[in-house]
Design a protein around this nucleic acid. Sequence first.
DNA 1: GATACTGGTATCCTTTGGGATAGTAGTATC
DNA 2: GATACTACTATCCCAAAGGATACCAGTATC
Lengths: 129, 129
Amino acid sequence: MEKELELADNARAVCAKLNCAEGVSGIRDALYVLSGKWKFPLIFALSQGPMRFKDIQRSLGDITPKVLTKELRELELNEFVVRNVFPTSPVTVTYELMPYSLTLDKVLLELKDWGIQHRQRLVSNRRGN
Amino acid sequence: MEKELELADNARAVCAKLNCAEGVSGIRDALYVLSGKWKFPLIFALSQGPMRFKDIQRSLGDITPKVLTKELRELELNEFVVRNVFPTSPVTVTYELMPYSLTLDKVLLELKDWGIQHRQRLVSNRRGN
DNA sequence: GATACTGGTATCCTTTGGGATAGTAGTATC
DNA sequence: GATACTACTATCCCAAAGGATACCAGTATC
C-alpha cells in the first residue's frame, strides 16, 4: 500500500533538486556566528557608525554591561568589529564595524523591515479581535 | 574639555536621523519570534513544500524529536506553519507553511546566501594560513 | 516471529544565555 | 568634598534551550 502522500514526495523531490541541504546548512552556518539575542541588533546599531560602549548600551535598550562586553568580544573574534582605544584621559573606547560586517547589510535590512511589518501586523490583529 | 570624539558624536547624530531605535527594535521584534537554533532552518526546509515529521528531522540533520516538536508547536502558534493529519493508518502527518511564512522569503534567501559565502570564506582563510 | 518505520512522549541532564547587583580607577563637575 | 560619568570586571544566580536516551502503538516487511 502506498502510504506516501504526493505532497511529501514532491517536497523531497523539489528539495533534492534545489539542494535543500545546502540551503539549510548555509543558514545554520550563518546562525552559528550570529546566534543569540544581541548580535544582529548590535551590528545594526554599529552600522550607523562607530560608537562608544555606553552609547551602544543605550541604543540597545536593556543590555547589561557584562553581556555587551561578551557580545563585542565575540564579534571581534569573528572580525565583524574593531575596538579602538583613544589615549584621552580617561580612555575613550569606540567600537566600529569592520568591512566584513558590511556584507551583512542586506540580511539586516530585510530582517529589520520584516520585524517592523511583523509588529504592525500584531498590533492590528490585537485591534481586530 | 571636550571628551567626545567626533566619531561618536557623528554616529549619534546619524543614528537619530535614521531612526536607529526603530531599526534596532524592528530587529528585536523579528528575533523574538524567530530566535533559537532551529526556526530559520526549519522554515527554510518547509519552504520547499509540505513535509512529514521524520523527513523534516532528516533534512535538519541532528534535531531531536522532542526539540522538533517544540519548534513546530511554536511556529504553529505564530501562524507560520499548519499541521495536517491524514486519516491513513497509521496516520500521516505533514507540516506546511502558511502564507505568512512567505513574507520571510527574502530574509531567508539573504541569510542562506550569506551563510554559504561565510563558510567559503572560512575555508579559504584556513587554507591561506 | 523479528525487525523497521511513523509520529511522536517522557524523563533526565547539561549547557548557555543572560539578568541583577556591586564595585573599580580615573577624571570632571558642582 | 560629594556626586557623576566612563568602561568596564566580578560574582551570583536562574530559566530556558537543547541534547541523550528510552519508550509507545500501530502497521508493514522479511
